[in-house]
Nucleic acid binder design. Structure first.
Lengths: 209, 209
DNA sequence: AGGCTATTGTTAAAATAATAACAATGCAAA
DNA sequence: TTTGCATTGTTATTATTTTAACAATAGCCT
């Protein structure tokens, strides 16, 4: 497979969720338009994405749910578990840790970090919380490869530098402040306000029509 | 202005954040490459976006920070405040409410909804929490136009239907379950796992090289 | 069996988005 | 004043992503 578009990667992850739901319902096959409906995209796009990963469905029966789940897993999952840490265990950090609890994925949150002494040493739904000061030590000991940042804006830059220094390979930044990472570290930023303002923009323009 | 690309809308919102920061620092002008650096994009893209909204900077001095903030505001803000509600006041809901606290934007969170009697009637950083059963009444009374869903997956569909029924115009769905809305309601979905799996995919492929 | 239809797989076209290229020009320094 | 250069604004090009089009065919119905 030469190269999978970013967008396709993101959709594959979503397809899998839909497929797992179907599997749970006992469905063995699914049509492209059924997946499309769930994800609010077109059936063509689903077929095209599936084509890109080299899977082939059955004419008039659709795709084998289980096979497709496995294949998507082969592509987007790592062979081995990838350990993830969450830096900042405020509301958002807790939400993320809870969100992952009990989901079967190769991604596992194995550490949380905070500066609050009241939190350090405790656990959040099974995930131990460490002192941010020990971030490098813990990340290397546990071979953590991905860091999720949910700290307040003022600490973002400092924490990011610590993560990079500790040898982290990917960062998902939920803080409102953009960061810089050296080449070789994958960075994904997400800002809730941007999403909300986007919704608001379309609500507004629609109203004006 | 004929038509602004979705991506540009999203970036404008981010530019504004960067600009507000600069304004706070006392900067009166800013260069395209400075904005670009903050946002991890190219200066060309910044200039192009700014061109699209019809603003013109000063050669060798850059863009007037204050003017640009105002113009972006004119474009992406509503004239009037848009009221937003958050349905589900768990960790994520609380995180979002806190996140907005004290930010000056036309978007204001004016209601939270929950089913937990212990939460109903209380406030979260100033935002009153109502019973989900009263969702239609409150939304109409307060003229709330946008709903943010942070409820558990099982309740997603039901809550979504209630929001639509109450006349909401835009929905931002943070739950893991995709929803359907009728034409005329703008829907934006965000799934944290998708973001994280995307990061993991690139961490994985890079490792394999 | 034979025709009809729904569905896949794939190529082609269109739309969207990002990047490059470069003319214009105003400020700074000589 | 004049030269050089940094910076904008804009058009052109390229890359990416989505959508359309349609041939192929497996299964269903008669």
């Amino acid at each position: 497979m030469k190269h999978l578009p970013h967008k396709t990667i993101a959709r594959l992850s979503q397809y899998r969720r839909a497929l797992l739901l179907c599997l749970a319902k006992g469905k063995t096959h699914i049509f492209s338009h059924e997946i499309a409906k769930i994800q609010h995209i077109t059936a063509v796009q689903v077929r095209r994405d599936i084509m890109l990963i080299g899977y082939t469905g059955t004419l008039r029966k659709g795709y084998n749910v289980k096979e497709l789940i496995d294949l998507i897993g082969n592509i987007i999952d790592s062979e081995k578990r990838i350990d993830v840490c969450v830096v900042g265990t405020g509301n958002l950090g807790k939400a993320i840790i809870n969100y992952f609890k009990g989901r079967r994925t190769k991604l596992t949150i194995t550490a949380g970090f905070d500066i609050d002494p009241k939190k350090i040493g405790k656990k959040i739904t099974g995930v131990p919380i460490y002192n941010v000061a020990d971030i490098k030590k813990i990340i290397q000991e546990k071979n953590i490869r991905i860091g999720v940042m949910t700290v307040p804006g003022e600490q973002t830059t400092e924490i990011c530098d610590m993560l990079v220094d500790a040898g982290i390979k990917g960062i998902l930044n939920f803080t409102p402040k953009p960061v810089n990472v050296p080449h070789g570290v994958f960075l994904e930023e997400y800002d809730m306000i941007t999403s909300l303002e986007k919704v608001a923009f379309f609500v507004k323009t629609q109203n004006e029509l």
